[in-house]
Amino acid sequence: MREASELDYPDLRLTYLESRRKSFYWTNIEEMTLEDFDRDTVGEYILLAEDDFHILGFTSLYLPDNFIHNLFVHPDFSGKGVGVQLVNSAVEKMNKPVRLKCVSENRKALSFYENNGWKKVVEEGKPGEKYWVMVYD
Rank of each mutant, 00 (worst) to 15 (best):
F24G: 02
L12I: 01
S19D: 02
L14P: 00
L12D: 03
L110F: 06
M134V: 04
Y9A: 02
S111A: 08
S23A: 14
Y45M: 15
K126D: 14
E50C: 01
R39F: 04
T27K: 02
F58G: 02
M32H: 05
Y131W: 08
L56Q: 15
S104R: 15
V133C: 02
Y9W: 13
Y9V: 14
S78H: 04
S60C: 03
F112H: 08
K119C: 05
H54P: 00
H74M: 09
L34H: 04
K93Q: 05
W132R: 01
L71H: 04
A109T: 05
G79H: 13
F53Q: 02
T15L: 12
A90H: 03
E44A: 06
K126M: 05
L34R: 06
R20Y: 09
G57I: 01
L63V: 11
G125D: 07
S60T: 06
N115F: 06
E44L: 13
I55E: 08
L100F: 00
L86A: 05
R2P: 02
L14V: 07
L12N: 02
V42I: 14
P97R: 11
D11G: 00
F67Q: 07
H74Q: 10
K119G: 02
G128Y: 11
W26K: 12
L34D: 06
G125C: 01
Q85D: 01
R13M: 15
P97A: 13
E105S: 12
R107L: 14
L48H: 02
K126E: 15
A49Y: 06
S78L: 14
N115K: 13
N106L: 06
E50W: 04
L47A: 11
F67K: 09
L110R: 06
V87N: 06
G81T: 06
W26L: 10
T41H: 09
G83A: 15
E30M: 04
E92T: 12
M94Y: 09
S23H: 03
V91L: 00
V42M: 09
P10N: 12
R99Q: 04
Y25E: 05
E129G: 03
L7N: 10
F58L: 04
G43Q: 10
R21E: 08
F112T: 04
